[in-house]
Design a protein around this nucleic acid. Structure first.
Length: 892
RNA sequence: GCCCCGGUGGCGGAAUCGGUAGACGCAGCGGAUUCAAAAUCCGCCGCCGAAAGGUGUGCCAGUUCGAGUCUGGCCCGGGGCACCA
């Protein structure tokens, strides 16, 4: 006898007890989870005989405990996994830990716990929480990215890419805290100051390793068109991020002779004749050269380095500049053009220099007004008011209607023709050419932090940078370490960095920077296919689970650009290194879930030193006061009964003290209620408003469903199928509703991935069931059919409860192993349908007609109905619109 | 600042292809049951109006027989901006 069969008999024996009258979630959930564990229900085994369904949720950072966003994310994944398993797919739903990252170092600073110990204990706690939610996860594939068994393979890949030139070293800007002598993350820079020291932050250039993602820019862009399963908005965001633009890269020769040239890129070469200045970044070689004997300019360049490196800060700061005294020659007119240093020009974009055309670029216009630089109009649009060099008008940048003026031989040309003509002339003078440029920059992966994957490079005074040879991998991160918040801990550990050069054997120094933690999350989804392989990064099982892409990926919208782009990049890199075949895109279907938000409450703190500061109060400690219609009129603190201020809904966070701990919810109501409410409260891609009252409603529904099923079971199970012909008209209505609901729920789970409407449909069905006469034999059979179907329809969302309900209705059977209910087309037949009647687009009545009624008879019935007669007021008929199955619109 | 998304009753939301706006749930109100309460069950529930009816999907225009849905402009809220993950 097969093991599965023995277990199922044991299960049957254990389940033979009578159904409990009351819904008891704790007991039901314990028993169902034990059953799934012992039967290996969630184990995923490669099986060429079944279509595979790889359902992946973004793995969590082990921050301590689960938050509502996790519950939401993993419930969506579990619903899709369980639904597809019932549809006959071979499902893989894995889970792991994105375990490297800054919070572990912050915790070490705050609580004096080593990052490794903190991380592993968080993982243990969160794993237990995930298990208590009953997710059908194959736990045998679990891994944490902070273990050498995982990160050794990214070190290995790094050395391969280094040898291929896909990893290289160059200078990059970081936030430097001059007091703590350390590099800060963007989030650690608050209003231009270090979060701990309060020191003014400055930009500093340090050597870093870069991944050549720009070499894949074209492919990453064009492949977006092959992702019909992605939300349009995410594809658009990625497209804009990659930012392909065609333009002209050209040079201004330096006026003081020599062969030196200043290169710029522009998408508006039609305006080159309007250039009145050129601006370079503070780090540009020309700026450095000019500052050598210009004290004032040197000081200005220093001030440009104040503040952080985040693009949002740079884009919103005041635009400032200073002349360098250096002149370049206009490549077409020969005119002398002054070079300025601008704090808004970034060295990391293109050539670190931009041409200034104040008449036709809004930013240049403001800059020229501020520094009284010449403004030369070279584009005019017929019909627009005269050009003014006092105030900006959007038509100055109009590409479609503009014609060139004051541009010599180019006068009269449109934008496109002018770009072509000017590019051709620049090319003829060997001073430029048409070029495609990307906004996307190479990915800097060096981090001056401890809790990350060590970069496997050895710096040798004679051999230079040498990748760590395979036999010396992994470079293990020491787990016993002191975190001080000042400087990189690894750089203070000679036992880590002192080493021998693998090439010459001489004394050398190991790289002490670690990798960006996006590195781990860029390939973890491939490793789930073969987590036990100790001899290779990936193996042939990737081809089984990942061919055609991962079938469903689910995660927060906040990852729409970086994580998803890096993962797409890695899949192509690993293909080109020969590790995997051509999988195409890694994620065939993407669902981006919205955030979980909750109301906020606060009191203003008293005292001069606390001016403007707020004391945030947890929603659990507040009573909301409402008027007789339920409108909130105020709120009071439970502890003292005095008022607090209502602050509106915001993303659950520690800083606003508005987090709701899912554990309290699970402890009180059970996992199924938590899952049901979180899926019912909002569509998955929209933000979700937390509400305790709504949870109560979800719990009430499960209790009611339980009681309804219990009553039916008490009255005796029915083995026979409902016979359509023997049903009364009211019973036929219920059966139609049942099969409409089956169709609706299947479509919601499968195509629409919208679960709130699926739950609402089942609630409607249960309401209809309660109102239907089901006491005769035909009704009893229909009741059995309906309740069995409801248990299976809800199984993906509330699997513990549905498992128990189904077992009570079909003793010995396992809900999760049943096929998903199918629509019986015979049940959907309807003889008569209702059509709405409008007069001039306004609803005025309704008519009932035969389902197959001819247009002529529908028209006659509509014109004859009371509402139509009344509102037509005898006016002549102008037009008659009949929308089949919907409505009739009478236009008079 | 730039890119993307959203805005519908007291609240969360539904309306899937331009065709009955407010399904389903929460809150509220009225009733039944109960010694009482909890739980449960029944009914009402956008706004104005006695009713007839009018009006209503952030605001202003437009397209259409018909607009929550499409177009243009604006206001407000949220996500991302390359070292939070």
């Amino acid at each position: 006898m097969a093991v599965g069969s023995i277990i199922s008999r044991l299960f049957q024996g254990r389940r033979a007890q009578p159904m409990q009258e009351k819904y008891a979630p704790a007991e039901i959930e314990r028993s169902a989870q034990l059953h799934w564990d012992t039967t290996g229900a969630a184990r995923a085994v490669e099986d060429a005989g079944k279509p595979k369904y790889y359902c992946l949720s973004m793995f969590p950072y082990p921050s301590g405990k689960l938050h509502m966003g996790h519950v939401r994310n993993y419930t969506i994944g579990d619903v899709l996994s369980r639904f597809h398993a019932m549809q006959g797919y071979n499902v893989l739903q894995p889970m792991g830990w994105d375990a490297f990252g800054m919070p572990a170092e912050n915790a070490a600073l705050a609580n004096n716990v080593p990052p490794a110990a903190w991380t592993y204990s968080n993982i243990d706690y969160m794993r237990a929480q995930l298990k208590s939610l009953g997710f059908a996860i194959d736990w045998e594939r679990e891994f944490a990215t902070c273990t050498p068994a995982y990160y050794r393979w990214e070190q290995w890949l790094f050395t391969r890419l280094y040898e291929k030139g896909l990893v290289y070293k160059k200078l990059g800007s970081v936030n430097w805290d001059p007091v703590d002598n350390t590099v800060l993350a963007n989030e650690q820079v608050i209003d231009g100051r270090g979060w701990r020291s309060g020191a003014l932050i400055e930009k500093r250039e340090i050597p870093m390793y870069y991944m050549k993602i720009t070499a894949y820019a074209e492919e990453l862009l064009s492949e977006l068109d092959n992702l019909p399963g992605w939300p349009e908005q995410v594809r658009l965001m990625q497209k804009n991020w990659i930012g392909k633009s065609t333009g002209v890269r050209f040079a201004f020769p330096l006026a003081d002779g020599g062969d030196d040239k200043l290169w710029v890129f522009t998408t508006r070469a039609d305006t080159v004749m309007g250039v009145t200045f050129v601006a370079v970044a503070a780090e540009h070689p020309l700026a450095t050269r000019a500052a050598l004997n210009n004290r004032e300019l040197a000081d200005f360049i220093e001030t440009c380095k104040q503040g952080g490196v985040a693009e949002a800060d740079i884009a919103t700061m005041e635009k400032k500049g200073m002349a360098t005294g250096i002149y370049v020659t206009h490549p077409l007119t020969g005119e002398a053009i002054e070079v300025w240093v601008g704090n808004y020009v970034l060295m990391s974009y293109g050539d670190g220099a931009v041409m200034g055309v104040p008449a036709h670029d809004e930013r240049d216009f403001a800059f020229a007004l501020k520094y009284r630089l010449p403004i030369r109009q070279v584009i005019a649009v017929a019909g627009e008011p005269a050009f003014s060099d006092e105030t900006w008008a959007d038509w100055y940048a109009d590409k479609q209607r503009g014609r060139l003026i004051h541009s010599g031989k180019y006068d009269g040309l449109g934008c496109e023709a002018a770009v072509d003509a000017i590019a051709a002339d620049l090319t003829a003078r060997h001073l430029g050419e048409k070029k495609t440029q990307f906004r996307l920059r190479d990915w800097g992966i060096s981090r001056q932090r401890y809790w990350g994957c060590p970069i496997p490079i050895i710096h040798c005074p004679t051999c230079g940078d040498v990748p760590v040879p395979d036999e010396q991998l992994p470079v293990v991160l020491p787990e016993s370490v002191e975190i001080t918040g000042a400087g990189s801990p690894l750089a203070k550990m000679p036992e880590f960095y002192e080493c021998q050069c693998p090439r010459c054997g001489g004394d050398a120094r190991r790289e002490t920077d670690t990798m960006d933690t996006f590195f781990e999350s860029s390939w973890y989804f491939l490793r789930y296919a073969c987590p036990d392989n100790t001899a290779a990064m990936v193996d042939e099982r990737v081809a089984y689970w990942c061919s055609g892409g991962i079938d469903q990926y689910i995660g927060g919208i906040e990852h729409a650009i970086l994580h998803l782009l890096y993962s797409r990049f890695f899949t192509k890199l690993m293909r080109d290194v020969g590790l995997i075949g051509d999988l195409g895109e890694p994620f065939a279907n993407l669902l981006t879930q919205g955030m979980v938000v909750a109301p906020t409450f606060y009191r203003d703190l008293e005292g001069e030193e606390n001016r403007g500061k707020k004391q945030w109060i947890n929603p659990a400690d507040v009573d909301v006061v409402t008027d007789e219609r339920g409108r909130p009129t105020g709120a009071t603190l439970k502890a003292d009964g005095l008022p607090v201020i209502i602050g509106g809904s915001e993303k659950m966070s520690k800083s606003k003290n508005n987090g709701v701990d899912p554990q309290a919810l699970i402890d009180r109501y059970g996992a199924d209620t938590a899952r049901l409410f979180i899926m019912f409260a909002a569509p998955p891609d929209q933000s979700l408003e937390w509400s305790d009252a709504g949870v109560e409603g979800a719990y009430r529904f499960l209790r009611r469903l339980w009681k309804t099923t219990y009553d039916h079971v008490q009255a005796g199970l029915v083995a026979t199928q409902a016979v359509p012909d023997s049903l009364s008209s009211a019973q036929a209505d219920l059966r139609r509703k049942l099969h409409q609901t089956i169709g609706k729920v299947s479509d919601d789970y499968g195509r629409r991935k919208q679960f709130n409407t699926a739950i609402a449909a089942v609630m409607e069905l249960l309401n209809a069931y309660d109102k239907s006469p089901l006491d005769d034999a035909a009704g009893r059979a229909l009741a059995q059919e309906t309740l069995e179907s409801i248990a299976l329809l809800l199984f993906p969302i509330v699997p513990h409860c549905a498992q128990a309900l189904y077992a009570a209705l079909k003793p010995g059977l396992d809900a999760g192993r049943q096929p998903f209910p199918k629509v019986d087309p015979a049940a959907l037949k309807q003889d008569e349908i209702e059509l709405m009647v409008q007069v001039n687009g306004k609803l005025r009545g309704a008519i009932r007609v035969a389902a197959e009624a001819e247009r002529a008879s529908i028209e006659a019935a509509a014109l004859a109905c009371d509402g139509a007669v009344k509102f037509m007021e005898g006016k002549p008929l102008k037009k008659l619109v009949v929308v089949p199955g919907r409505l009739v619109n009478i236009v008079v």
